[in-house]
Design a protein around this nucleic acid. Sequence first.
RNA 1: GCCGAAGUGGCGGAAUUGGUAGACGCGCUGGACUCAAAAUCCAGUUCGACUCAAAUCGAGUGGGGGUUCGAGUCCCCCCUUCGGCACCA
Length: 860
Amino acid sequence: MKYDFLSIENKWQEYWEREKTFRVLDNEKKPKLYVLDMFPYPSGAGLHVGHPEGYTATDILCRYRRMKGFAVLHPMGWDAFGLPAERYAMQTNIHPKVTTERNIDTFRRQIKMLGLSYDWEREVNTTDPKYYRWTQWIFLKIYNSWFDPRERKARPIETLEQKLAAHGTKNLNVEHSFTADEWKRKTKKEKHDFIAQFRLAYVAEIPVNWCEALGTVLANEEVAEWTEKGYSIERRPMRQWMMRITAYSERLLEDAKELDWPISTLEQQRNWIGRSEGADVVFAVKGKKENIRVFTTRPDTLFGATYMVLAPEHPLVDIVASPEQREQIQQYRKETAFKSELERGIEKEKTGVFTGGYAINPTTGKEIPIWIADYVLMGYGTGAIMAVPGHDNRDMEFAKKFDLKIIKVVDGGPDVAECFVEDGIAINSANKEVSLNGLSTPEAKKTIIAWLEKKELGKLAVTYKLRDWLFSRQRYWGEPIPIVYLEDGTLKAIDEKELPLELPSLEKFQPSGTTESPLALATDWVNIIDKETGLKGRRETNTMPQWAGSCWYYLRFIDPKNDTAFCGIEKERYWMPIDLYVGGSEHAVLHLMYSRFWHKVLNDLDYVGTKEPFLKLRHQGIILGEDSRKMSKSRGNVVNPDDVVKEYGADAMRLFEMFMGPLEEMKPWSTRGVEGVFRFLNRFWRLFVNEEGKLGSAIKDVEASADFERLYHQTVKKVGDDIDNLRFNTAISQMMIFLNEAMKLEIRPRKLMENFVLLLAPFAPHVAEEIWEKLGHTKSTAYEPWPMYDEAKCAESTVEVVLQINGKVRSKIAVAKDTPVTELELLAFKDTNIKRYTDGKRIIKKIIIPNKLVNIVIGN
RNA sequence: GCCGAAGUGGCGGAAUUGGUAGACGCGCUGGACUCAAAAUCCAGUUCGACUCAAAUCGAGUGGGGGUUCGAGUCCCCCCUUCGGCACCA
């Protein structure tokens, strides 16, 4: 009988579903394992062949570990909010909910068709109000928290109020400090506004990336993706929700050190956080009481600071500007305001305007001009720099263009003509109180910082590139932000008990025409009366970004049906952290940074017990088209999993995706390759099944030959080890070797063959179940104990030892394992080939490694 | 420009701590079965030289140096590809 994958696969998928084979309980007396796939965005296009790669990998590991006695949590769900569904709704006026459901159905069907062992009772959907109720709940927890700098953690906002009532602003980093008494005298609105600036979720008027065509703002890290797709993005100031991820810069950096993640991903996160050490230095402004604070990584070059630059948006610009320069300044500010940071970067030529004001270099006492220029960014450091053109390329370029003074303060040796940016020996750097001359750069830094600290002109400082997370989108299809703007100008968080705040249904999904989301058009929903105060209120019309739902979905899988908590604490303690997380590397800095941030907040507030959610992370590589180019509709090289499964079956599809190469590598699809593993499965089938579809008579209860038994033990060992290390390609090779040998046997020892079925079961579960049944078993392979191997029986009895002359292989001999050195030497010199080389030659050295080689070094 | 990863047959890819380069699969070649084909099975397959053949020899893991008895693996320089960042003071 032929290997009829279609009926076999249907049969077993139905069996698993009916028997709930892969349901996992939360109180099993077994070691736990939480293996998570990044849940997909269910696009209209359906699954592509890239999805099953990671899914199959984790599925194999899960099936294997179940057989090894683990309780395995392996869930799947849908990250279903997002722009594509809404854009589709704008064109067709079909509600995103409808298309989303349709797409999810397709995805679910396709994923089930691959025989993946998910516990479907834990399926979650980020667009389900029962789910986003808790996304909103977490938002409120974040909103109602502040970051206590002394404890370096988030705490409930009430603790801040208590602190202010007891001690005023003592120990808080604020511009205008006040006492506890002064706090008590403040009005409700004043208190509200003051507290607002400490919340981990806050509203700010900032320049954002506005995309007119999409009708929404985009986070900095999203801009590239959409500009690549041809959308144009402009810079404009808008009121937006922000999340204070920057408070966690240091912890995100620090805790990453303990993660077992791909180096490149850790590196990307590190770069994104962008920690740099230096000093804050205060410059006095001539004739004004205001100071300009700058951040520099090279305080040792302070004597060489010959001018200053403020970002065009810097608040002090108006103060330092002289009347006659104002017009030029306004003009310049207008020009730069609309440019995105990207555009600013593209323009090579430096631009800028003199403000007319002067600052005082604190080391020399000399007046230096203050300029504004867009090469200084408001979002980084203090938005102002001290310019040292002698030792900074950008400052040099600017100084040359505008004819500013250049002083050398670091000796870069005799050959340095231009700008010298490296470490060197300080020169021209002395005043009456301090001298850096002769000091190396690190020493000079220490010395000048000590001097600055003594004079209270500066201090050691650390700055991060990481910016706060722009959290609002002008979208309909996202989680509503559970906040109301009251008519007295205060913000009010919706009571937890009123969650979920559901999306109102809309007739049309077109952008509102303003910068508000389409939700603004749902006036009944937007306008409310606050029950508590009777004040009129207006709901926040922005929604959350797509990342919100995926920030915590891994926690919901633990307790998906809980109506009283986002996740029960005991279950959380049992299952977390995630032992393996697999998904695309495109999320290296977005999802993976945001969810770490949320997790840390939840940890600080004692809702979760771990510092980090994802202990071990791996990325699956991209699967290219058969032509080794990126799969795309326009190239016509897209491979559809449905077609592959129809033609060769899910087991073949799974096996091929794993056999292609290392999981993390980028690799091209190959139909021939699928045929190859399909042949393997056919051979596997024929190994057991005869023409009548019965168990073949070659399978017999007999002892295996020594050679075959050895290969068996080697195979059990290698397959297990390889799965543990996610090296599925080599595990499959080993099974092919075993199969090739088994095929040659007239009589196949039943016990070994049965166990071989179990080895293959995680990879090709359908066919394995079918054969297992034919072998007379009544239970699924899913919880059969994984075969054991005997290390002693893996060893070869005879080994081939290489005989080398001067490191070149000249002969080979077969000897018993562990033949002693002396014996090997004797055998080597007896070898006729070796004799030809050694005869009449001087033997300089003999290197003899048992079981490996004999290397004879000869001279003339 | 900076950071990270990777370069192995015709192709995808294997190779513990430095110790037989090319496992396994694809493709290709030859053969068996067949009227024929498909499927299947068997044998061969890094390149080159000499051979009827075997045996043997030479070269060989992006390029060039180095360490070592011995390098795909370690060190230095360079080239290419991919991914990320991009005036970050």
